[in-house]
Design a protein around this nucleic acid. Structure first.
Length: 262
DNA sequence: ATGGTCGAGCATCGA
């Protein structure tokens, strides 16, 4: 089973890319971020034609998340962090494949983590509060759902191997110590960065700024992650980054990341 | 030379 995440930066603009990539990569489950679409405008019929059921939680202009699945959804759709009041649509969780709690079920938590703007800004403080609330929620999710996948645009590069020029990003947004510690506190719950189960090299990225031809120059960061629980870690057979779509015409600034589990 | 590009929606903001 292949589970993927992609920040599409407007599903309205990127639907043709998504359709092409679904057909080429044939993922079973896909988490999307930055759909920027209100729910009545979500293209669920077009995606159903490719065999995908959809859950979505969007808003105009900003944010917006969705889950696509070839397997049936077997739970309600959870939107937002329980108990954390937040008008921004950044979270969508559901169970796929089998009844919640069964060994065949997979719990999927799709996160569009707050960007944070710059270290020390109000948005930065919001990012850290938001991540602390996610941590407390995931602690409970792990009790209920041993087969847990937490994936999305984390807006955090886990360490310097994930940054094209670490000295340029030192203590900057996406790379600062408080952000990395917040991510580590999620991993400390019993989650693993699936990409690093298979590859420990530097130089693998999932996002490149639109400016200055960053993609062609290799100026990227790995900020899109697929975290897996302990039980799922044992079932992981591969993980990777599909850089192809970043080179297509009129691309998202992010490219899909994925994990394979048995 | 750490610059300046997208997407949204109509001037500028967020990333």
């Amino acid at each position: 089973m292949k589970i993927a995440s992609w920040n599409v930066n407007s599903l309205n603009v990127r639907l043709p890319h998504l359709q092409r990539w679904l057909q080429e990569a044939t993922p079973d489950v896909v988490a999307l971020q930055e759909t920027k679409l209100e729910d009545p405008k979500f293209p669920d019929a077009a995606l159903a034609e490719l065999g995908y059921r959809s859950m979505f939680c969007g808003q105009k202009t900003y944010n917006g998340v969705a889950l696509l699945s070839r397997l049936p959804f077997t739970s309600e759709c959870v939107t937002g962090i329980p108990g954390f009041d937040d008008p921004q649509k950044r979270v969508l969780a559901a169970t796929v494949g089998s009844e919640p709690g069964s060994p065949q079920a997979l719990r999927i938590v799709n996160l569009y983590v707050v960007n944070g703007e710059s270290v020390g800004s109000e948005k930065f403080e919001y990012k850290l509060r938001w991540l602390a609330a996610v941590r407390e929620w995931l602690r409970e999710e792990l009790v209920q759902h041993p087969n847990l996948v937490v994936l999305g645009d984390f807006n955090i590069a886990p360490d310097d191997r994930d940054v094209y020029k670490p000295e340029r990003w030192h203590e900057k947004i996406l790379c600062s110590t408080p952000e990395r510690e917040a991510l580590k506190s999620l991993l400390d719950l019993g989650l693993h960065d699936s990409f690093r189960l298979f590859n420990d090299e530097a130089g693998h990225h999932s996002w490149w700024d639109y400016r200055l031809n960053a993609f062609d120059r290799g100026w990227g960061l790995r900020i899109d992650l697929v975290l897996v629980s302990q039980a799922l870690r044992a079932r992981c057979t591969g993980a990777g980054i599909d850089t192809g779509p970043r080179a297509w015409e009129r691309p998202s600034d992010h490219t899909p990341v994925w994990v394979e589990v048995t």
